[in-house]
């Protein structure tokens, strides 16, 4: 009993340290604010995550290149990407882009993923919610 207790305590402490290290080093993506503040690495590839600004998606005619803005409602970063976007890539939804940021502040993505949120609802409910939001003037 005592032995199990000691082992458990040891494991809990080491797990806590491992998680702290994780917190600092294994951030899955950086926010636009972190990128603008220069906290994101400039010399290597990293991931940028944020909401795709409504109406910001511009497709270059005749190519697969697309440009859009990613925001965390505090700062915004322009993203350039050439390739196929996932089906759930939508304006107003979260996207995660992997790439580098150049000196002019444009993020060139090698890959763009769509993050799905935790909301599940049928189309009729989504429509009603949208109408309600529009009616209340938000």
């Amino acid at each position: 009993m005592l032995f199990v207790g000691v082992v458990l305590c040891g494991v809990a402490v080491s797990a806590a340290f491992a998680l702290r290290a994780f917190n600092e080093n294994l951030l899955y993506f950086f926010s636009p604010t972190q990128v603008v503040a220069g906290e994101a690495p400039t010399e290597r590839v990293f991931r940028l995550g944020g909401v795709v600004v409504e109406g910001s998606v511009v497709r270059e005619p005749g190519s697969l290149t697309v440009e859009f803005l990613v925001t965390d409602y505090a700062n915004t970063v322009p993203v350039r990407y050439t390739g196929v976007l996932p089906d759930l890539f939508r304006e107003g939804q979260v996207a995660v882009a992997r790439g580098r940021v150049d000196s002019s502040g444009v993020f060139t993505a090698e890959e763009v993923l769509a993050k799905h949120d935790e909301n599940y609802r049928p189309p009729a409910v989504a429509e009603a919610l949208e109408k309600g939001r529009a009616a209340s003037g938000q």
């Binding site: 998680l19 994780f22 917190n23 294994l26 951030l27 899955y28 993506f29 926010s31 995550g49 995660v96 993923l113 993050k115 799905h116 949120d117 935790e118 909301n119 599940y120 609802r121 049928p122 409910v125």
Partner: peptide, 24 residues
């Protein structure tokens, strides 16, 4: 909840009301 992940947050396993309609 601890890290920014690609995987979404909890839909039903949370104290809040579930983020899914009853028929689903």
């Amino acid at each position: 909840e601890w890290w920014s992940t690609l995987h979404q947050g909890p839909t039903i396993a949370k104290l809040d009301t579930p983020s899914i309609t009853f028929d689903m």
